[in-house]
Design a protein around this nucleic acid. Structure first.
Lengths: 260, 260
DNA sequence: CAAAATAACACTTGTTATGTTATAAATGTT
DNA sequence: AACATTTATAACATAACAAGTGTTATTTTG
């Protein structure tokens, strides 16, 4: 087991247990305490944990949980599964709009499997990934760069969209409540809204943990989307509301779990 | 001498001589032929050279010369000097438009010296460099990515510019003849033209080797620019024409050569 | 056939990861 | 407060790994 794997495993333990002990970890991974200390130092420098005497904790409920570096480490599986499901909506030759966010970035990188494609995005991570891929026509939407979201927003982005049409738009969101979709940032909402009508079809991507949450700004209602992809079933209530409205939720399964 | 340095040196030789021999290089750098082969393989994979039996060439006159990766490696000194001169036109707090090209990219990276700034560009190298700089408001113009120019172009770029105004625009060019400025690509011309009126002032950047050349598309006439910066004096004829037209050419000197 | 290119292996070198020991800091106990 | 005990840090040494290079054998090219 390599360093990186071990640190990831430590994070998993922290996410589930909230706290770990140095001695414990050293024994469990069969390495010296010093090595564990160094691992914890690394993770602390990354800003995802906090060292305490004898071990480390995740500052649950506060800053860390909402930190993108924390979220980054979570739900890799979910992203794989959701990207898998999203790719089924795409055929070579199509044009695809993708918005900001780490889920969208992951999907963006997966798009090379379906080339040739035209990819329209304001997501800097996608631009970096696809810029030098042959068979991908990359159209950047431009705009004012936001390091918080690692994407471009604003009027430039919106007027750029005004004259573009694609076969499908992928929109991701951090909060769904009932039939409404939310986002904490108004600027981001505007861009996402502008993207929606530019796709002939429109697909929402949402992690199952984001159901039953709201945020400051309403982005859309679920019936505006042709597809809604998530990684696991949400709460019964949430599910019932969606089904009562006659909408279908696509629960993405990992390939291995999927019935052939 | 490390691998990277040696490869760079090989590129320098190629740029000046157009061709190199394996045996020759092996002797010159005191390494085995195999090592030279590996260096050439690397450079070929990068796409900047072409291996031929016994050595390698730069595909002069065709794709490679117009490839940004090739130009990248040329005339570092000239770029430093011209960027120096261009920076004198900029004060903190201003907004600056910069176009595509390796000269522009170099200037873009230098802009952090004048922060806070707003930087508007379609140049991917500048976006990469300034994205995570504090004190720089980065506005990407978006557009369709061109790997040849490592920048974004097209209608998205142009409509993005339509509503933007900046204190100064920097336009670079590969060809000047008489009082006319040229570029080989129509798409690029359109974007550069769109940028020019968006700056209250407009500055042309041109390497002295580019005088007395034309290209397929006319971009502008020199009197449309408020400043023209180059690195060395062009031919007498070229200089005379410019001075007769009442225009001033700024010859950028390296700091060390400059009178205090 | 001769020259050159490639592939496979071995050797060297440099980097990264880890463990050990020694020292310092923090905590707990009397 | 003084001491003992635990935990953390620092410094060095070693081990594991990766990168770079050279040698030789084999294949390809002219």
């Amino acid at each position: 087991m390599k360093r990186e794997d071990r640190q990831k495993a430590i994070m998993d333990l922290l996410v589930t247990h909230g706290e770990v002990e140095v001695d414990n970890l050293a024994e469990q991974f069969a390495v010296s305490k010093m090595t564990i200390h160094r691992d914890l130092d690394d993770l602390e420098t990354e800003g995802v944990i906090r060292k305490i005497r004898g071990g480390a904790t995740i500052e649950s409920g506060t800053r860390f949980e909402s930190d993108f570096r924390f979220r980054e480490r979570q739900s890799q599986d979910a992203k794989v599964a959701m990207a898998e499901a999203a790719l089924k909506l795409i055929d070579p030759g199509m044009s695809v709009i993708i918005n900001d966010g780490s889920m969208a970035a992951f999907l963006g990188k997966s798009l090379i499997k379906k080339r040739p494609l035209t990819v329209i995005t304001n997501n800097a991570a996608i631009m970096d990934a696809l810029r030098n891929e042959s068979g991908i026509t990359l159209i950047s939407l431009g705009g004012c760069y936001s390091s918080k979201f690692n994407a471009y927003f604003g009027s430039v982005t919106e007027v750029g969209l005004a004259n573009l049409r694609a076969d499908i738009s992928f929109i991701s969101t951090p909060a769904i409540s009932g039939l409404e979709v939310f986002h904490m940032d108004d600027m981001v909402v505007k861009t996402k809204r502008a993207m929606m009508p530019c796709g002939t079809r429109c697909c929402l991507l949402v992690n199952h943990t984001r159901f039953d949450h709201t945020a400051l700004h309403k982005l859309a209602t679920l019936d505006e989307f042709d597809y809604i992809i998530t990684d696991k079933a949400p709460s019964k209530d949430a599910l019932a509301i969606i089904e009562n409205a006659g909408l279908t939720l696509t629960i993405a399964q990992k390939d291995s779990e999927e019935p052939s």
